[in-house]
Design a protein around this nucleic acid. Structure first.
Lengths: 153, 153
DNA sequence: AAGCAGTTGTTCAAATTCGAATGACTGGGT
DNA sequence: ACCCAGTCATTCGAATTTGAACAACTGCTT
């Protein structure tokens, strides 16, 4: 099959996507590490667990929602557990399972980290765009994510 | 200062950005590794060097355009050099400098890898969006990238 | 109730990433 | 000519990531 190369506009879109993603992640990562001593994956784990509430979350659910490998998650949760921000408990309904919970210290750490993180997210992405472009961006990327999610990617 | 939390739309945009980025990178990474035996960073190095042509590129220039650390680049270029896809030569005008060049084998590897890569990029991002949304996306992310570039991030 | 394919989470080794430290060199000012 | 702050690329160790292999368990089927 003949390759359909990217035209000028398409290439610009791809390039911008690459550069923006890298730079935004870098900016966020740096802020969190510096001000809260957390990596972005770690911060995301805390957020997901906070949202989940008392019930906690299974490791697999957590790994899927973070789009990371299971082994990577095991490692990161281990790190957070060492610091006392997270607990791992056996699952009642499924002996194979493990569910992670936010500790009180974890909730505190999240509360303290959140304002600086949100500020950086605004600075790097949200506040750069006007309402309309942001809406289109959200819509477009939601669809992109959804497609890949369904593909099993 | 009082924190300006993200409203519903803003949060949706940030979430979509996170998920889409992760999934797109993952998809691209997987395709390249599987079909061409290259990591995405490695592929990008080959592309930049191909564009640069005979003159090659300084390590620092390369690192900046790839948005990676210099030490990370040294490692990856080392890997490519081992495989004979890239050469490192002393810089004539600056004895500290090193410039990287694409070898004939590197050019071949790139030619062979490109079609599959482009196809995956289309599938994951470009072809998911209509012309208008793609244009807005490109425009928006170009600005996001530019801001962070200027900030030194 | 026994088998079995599939799921769950961890462990392991290998690959990659980063930042700090290093050694070499540049360029301009004195 | 000499110094000195700054740049260049690499090296090093530590942290992180990944996939494959593994052991334990589920729940369906027979």
């Amino acid at each position: 099959m003949e390759t359909r190369w990217l035209d000028e506009g398409e290439l610009a879109a791809w390039t911008a996507f690459l550069e923006a993603s890298h730079r935004v992640f870098r900016a966020v990562e740096q802020q969190l590490k510096q001000d809260a001593g957390l990596s972005h994956p770690q911060y995301e784990i805390l957020v997901k667990l906070a949202v989940a509430g008392g019930a906690g979350l299974r490791m697999t659910e957590l790994a899927e929602s973070l789009i990371t490998s299971k082994s990577g998650l095991t490692y990161q949760v281990g790190q957070l557990e060492k610091r006392g921000l997270v607990t791992r408990d056996a699952c009642l309904s499924d002996d194979r399972g493990v569910s992670a919970h936010l500790t009180e210290a974890g909730a505190v750490a999240l509360r303290e980290a959140a304002p600086g993180h949100v500020a950086r997210v605004r600075e790097a992405l949200i506040d750069v765009l006007d309402r309309d472009r942001l809406a289109v961006l959200a819509d477009a990327l939601t669809e992109v994510a959804a497609r890949l999610r369904d593909t099993g990617t």
